[in-house]
Design a protein around this nucleic acid. Sequence first.
DNA 1: ATGTCGGTGTCTCACCGA
Length: 258
Amino acid sequence: MKLATYNVNGINGRLPVLLRWLAEARPDVVALQELKAPDEKFPAAAIREAGYEAIWHGQKSWNGVALLSRVGAPVETRRGLPGDPDPSQSRYIEAAVAGVLVGALYLPNGNPRPGPKFDHKLAWFDTLIAHGATLIESGLPAALIGDFNVMPTERDVYKPERWTKDALFAPEVRERYAALLAQGWTDAMRARHPDAMIYTFWDYFRNAYERDAGLRIDHLLLSPALAGRLRGAGVNREVRGWDKSSDHAPTWIELADG
DNA sequence: ATGTCGGTGTCTCACCGA
C-alpha cells in the first residue's frame, strides 16, 4: 500500500496539480493539508472522478485537512485532535482505512517566535503527543502523517544556521518531535534513508526550488505495530516544479500487506 | 528586511498567513 501526505496549499487553486499527481503516482491513501476551503467548497466530485473516496475537515480561508483512499472508504474515527487548544482551526482528521488507523495532521507553523502563535504551536504539539501515546497504547497499526512544520535535525535543513530562531527549527519544537519518536513512532523517511539529504518543501521566494534550498517538514510516523511493514519511502519532488504547484511536494511510503 | 503564493474583503488592490 502506498501512503502519502501532501500539503496542497489551497485545494481549489491547486486542483489540476493534485489530480495530475493522483493520476501519475496512484497513491492508495493520501492525507492532504492546507485545503484553504470551507467544507462545502471541497472538490468532492473531482476527487471521486479521480477514483478516491474522501473525508475532509475544512474551514474558511485557512488550514483544513482531508483523507483520500482508493482502497476502501476511510472510516472516520476522529475529527479534531482530542483536547485541541483551539478547535476552531481544522488541523486533524483520523480514519481507519485499509486496516491502518491514519491520523492526518497539520501542525501550526508557529511564526513569529516568540509570540502567541509559537505558544499555540507548542500547546498543539503537546496535545498531539498525548494523543500519540494513546494510539501507541492501543497496539493498533497506526500512522501519524502530515505537515508537522518541524525540521527534526540539521540534516533536514539546507542551511541550519539560518533557521535556529525560526519556529520550524526551534529547540522546543524539535524536542517535541523527538518526544513523539521516543514513544515508539518511526520516522519512515529516515528509517529508509538515514543519511540522505531529503526535502519536502521549497519556499516560493528566491528561487528556492531551483537552488534546492529546501526543508524536510512533511513526515510519516509509524507505530510499532506498523513499522515492520515499511518497504520504501520517497518524495515526488518533480511535482514542486510543475506550473501552479504548492510549495510542498507529495511525500510517500510503501507498506507491505498486513 | 526581503521574496511569492492562495484566499478573502476592504474587492481589479491590500491585507493575512505561510
